[in-house]
């Protein structure tokens, strides 16, 4: 394996860990907001069923 000078490592580290951070935070955010949205929709559907005349 070749040697890489420390000065050149920074862009690679920023890229790798930056992408890792974005993926984890992005997916976590998607899951949390999806849950909130689905809970809201479920409540609306239940309210609609309760409001319907028998």
């Amino acid at each position: 394996m070749g040697y890489v000078s420390n000065a050149n490592a920074l862009p690679y580290l920023i890229a790798a860990y930056g992408i890792g951070f974005a993926v984890i935070v992005g997916y976590g955010y998607f899951l949390v907001t999806e849950r909130a949205r689905l809970l809201r929709i479920r409540q609306e559907v239940k309210n609609m069923h309760e409001a319907e005349p028998s």
């Binding site: 040697y3 890489v4 420390n6 860990y17």
Partner: peptide, 11 residues
Amino acid sequence: MQGEVYRIIYL
């Protein structure tokens, strides 16, 4: 051998 760039291993 790899210097600082090896730190990617942890991810």
